[in-house]
């Protein structure tokens, strides 16, 4: 068994001033092993992107603990934080916004190499950039090395973005909706490329997506966590959560997704919720936050008692009734 890389315990985060605090993360607990894939799925506003930024060290956290290599991240010394920066990298969603339009591929990829003294001199930089481009499948390398972002397609830009995140040889990659803005026909190849990289470099992924189908594909051997209003409502190995969802929210999501198969999608079993409006973060319902939409909700327990993520083994659910 590989060692645990990331330990998150009861982490919370809120934005805004003291009397107008908006809680975005409301106590999440999970671990990520050194070569594991954890997919986080949820609707917009569930806090998945904020969670990604907290894990990336771009945002702080208000409560709980976040251990990276057994060290509390917001208590790292300057030197250790620099090391953390090298070990943890992020891949952004929008390949058109994540690359500086005024820099060519070589400049984009070589700047961090020089900065962190990973290479010495121009020749080493060229060699390293070549191997990175090769790794992300942009071959022949010489066709890409001097291109500017606007000369590349969306998929190629995303690969450059991936290559850049690998420059510092990180162990943990946060991938924020990396394929949602990529053309359908190219998505699988990007996902496959990420999986290949994991195979070669043994990195851990924290993969954020709104698309359960993508999560199901990407985390075939990993786990999926479903988030709702700043909490994890269910977390389990992928096959388990897709095949045997327990939480009503997970069931609703799986049932709601249209599929690219006319008969399946039209006959699919739906799990109907009570009311389709999501409560706002300023006004999160008490008890189990999902009770306003949950068809199973029972008084008084679901309305009053906080839920915790419980369950035996790998499959954990935050629901009073399962």
């Amino acid at each position: 068994m590989s060692r645990t890389l990331i330990e998150v315990k009861d982490i919370s985060k809120s934005f805004g001033e003291k009397n107008k605090k908006v809680p975005v993360l409301r106590g999440l607990t999970f671990n990520i092993k050194a070569d594991e894939i954890l997919c986080v799925v949820g609707e917009s506003g569930c806090g998945k992107t904020t969670l990604g930024k907290v894990l990336a060290g771009l945002e702080g956290y208000n409560g709980g603990s976040y251990l990276h290599e057994k060290k509390e991240v917001n208590k790292l010394s300057k030197k250790d934080f620099k090391l953390f920066r090298r070990r943890v990298q992020m891949i952004h969603q929008d390949p058109f916004a994540s690359l500086n339009p005024t820099q060519n591929v070589f400049t984009i990829l070589s700047a961090p190499l020089y900065r962190h003294k990973i290479v010495k001199g121009y020749q080493q930089a060229v060699d390293k950039v070549n191997s990175l481009l090769d790794l992300v499948g942009l071959t022949p390398v010489q066709d890409f090395i001097d291109k500017f972002p606007h000369q590349l397609s969306g998929g190629q830009r995303q690969r450059i973005s991936i290559a850049r995140s690998l420059t510092l040889e990180p162990a943990f990659l946060i991938v924020d909706e990396a394929v949602s803005m990529i053309d359908t026909s190219l998505r699988i190849s990007i996902l496959n490329n990420l999986l290949e990289i994991q195979n070669k470099l043994k990195v851990a992924y924290f993969f954020i997506t709104h698309d359960l189908a993508v999560a199901n594909y990407f985390a075939q051997k990993g786990r999926i966590a479903v988030m709702y209003l700043g909490k994890i409502v269910e977390i389990a190995p992928t096959e388990e959560i897709i095949g045997n969802p327990r939480h009503p929210y997970t069931r609703a999501l799986i049932g709601a997704i249209p599929e690219a198969d006319p008969e399946v999608t039209r006959q699919k079993e739906r799990f109907k919720l009570k009311d389709s409006e999501v409560p706002s973060l300023q006004n999160i319902p008490g008890g189990c936050a999902f009770h306003t939409r949950c068809p199973w909700a029972e008084k008084p327990i679901c309305y009053e008692k906080e839920v915790r993520l419980t369950g035996s083994g790998q499959h954990k659910t935050a629901c009073h009734l399962v």
Binding site: L58, K82, R85, S98, N100, P112, T167, L168
Partner: peptide, 17 residues
Amino acid sequence: ERDYLEAAEMLDLSMFH
């Protein structure tokens, strides 16, 4: 707010850069 600056921050590039 552009992602490429966030990426530069993640890569710990210098202020001059």
